[in-house]
Simulated assay, not measured.
Amino acid sequence: MTAAKVGIREFRAGLSDFVDSDAPVAVTRHGHTVGYFIPVKEDRSADVAALRAAGEKLDALLSLTEDEVDAAIEDFKDLRHKGKKKS
């Protein structure tokens, strides 16, 4: 499989397309090859699951009442002060 030659500006402008493709790309500057980009296909299901979990945690935080937020802040302050005393 030969790599298509692409100028650095075109590569930068179309980076997302090159990432999604299967073909390697030879990146050139002034006609000289300066590097190769070889996209790696991987299973992104773990990343998607982690992102969904983070979104669920964020949703839970955003649904907290003001009293719950104040209590969490006080807990954080207490823990921080206990940590400083140990040092």
Rank of each mutant, 00 (worst) to 15 (best):
D67Q: 15
E42V: 13
M1P: 01
K82C: 00
A26G: 08
V40A: 13
K41A: 10
A4G: 00
K41T: 09
K5Y: 08
V40D: 11
I38P: 00
A50G: 09
K5E: 15
L64F: 02
L79R: 14
D22I: 03
T28A: 00
G7L: 02
L51K: 10
D59H: 11
S21K: 02
V19C: 06
E74S: 06
A72V: 01
H32I: 07
D20T: 10
D78M: 01
T65E: 13
D75Y: 01
P39F: 11
V25C: 06
R9Q: 05
K85V: 07
G14M: 03
D78A: 02
L61Y: 12
P39R: 11
G14E: 09
V34H: 04
S87A: 04
F37H: 10
R29T: 03
F18T: 01
T65K: 12
D17T: 06
H30S: 10
D67L: 08
G31W: 07
K86H: 02
I38H: 07
R12F: 09
S16M: 12
A3Q: 12
G7H: 08
G14C: 06
G31R: 07
S87M: 04
D22W: 03
L61K: 12
G35A: 15
L51D: 09
G83Y: 10
G35Y: 08
T28V: 06
Y36C: 02
I8V: 14
G83D: 04
E42S: 12
E10I: 08
A50Q: 08
L51E: 11
K77T: 03
K84Q: 14
L51V: 03
A46N: 07
A4T: 10
R29L: 12
R29D: 12
K41M: 01
T33D: 07
L62P: 00
L61A: 14
K41E: 09
V34R: 04
E56F: 00
S45G: 00
A53E: 14
A26Y: 10
D67G: 04
D70I: 13
G35Q: 14
A54Q: 06
R80F: 13
A72G: 05
A72D: 05
V40K: 15
V34F: 04
A49C: 03
S21Y: 02
A4V: 06
I73V: 15
S87H: 06
V19G: 01
D47N: 09
